[in-house]
């Protein structure tokens, strides 16, 4: 192929042929409600921490599903584990437990 001297930024796109979805699969086994998120965003909407540090539980989970594990690890540190999101989730996702699993994975 002709080399034009520039290329697409890897980070700027999602390539499901290259993503590593291992963490997503592990979480789904440990906490099956991880799979049932409908991306409504009520978790992030109610989040107290988000007012201060922009934390979004929905986005963290989405990054894990896209294989952006490092980004998700950094995000998980922003959570205060207060559990408000667990109260509002319409699909009964155990959000707090998922945050704990992600942090644990980050430390291993």
């Amino acid at each position: 192929m002709v080399n034009f001297g520039f290329s697409a930024l890897e980070i700027a796109s999602v390539d499901f042929d290259k993503t590593n979805r291992k963490l997503a699969e592990e979480i789904a086994l440990l906490e099956p409600t991880f799979s049932t998120c409908i991306s409504c965003g009520s978790c992030a909407g109610t989040c107290t921490a988000s007012r201060f540090n922009g934390f979004s539980f929905r986005n963290m989970c989405h990054q894990i599903k896209l294989g952006n594990v490092t980004k998700a690890f950094v995000e998980s540190e922003k959570c205060m584990l207060c559990g408000k999101c667990t109260l509002v989730c319409p699909r009964n996702v155990n959000t707090r437990n998922i945050c704990r699993i992600v942090r644990k994975a980050a430390n291993n």
Binding site: S13, V14, F16, D17
Partner: peptide
């Protein structure tokens, strides 16, 4: 596009 992360997406 993966509109939840605003990124173009491809896969085979």
């Amino acid at each position: 596009e993966d509109t939840l992360s605003s990124k173009p997406l491809k896969m085979s």
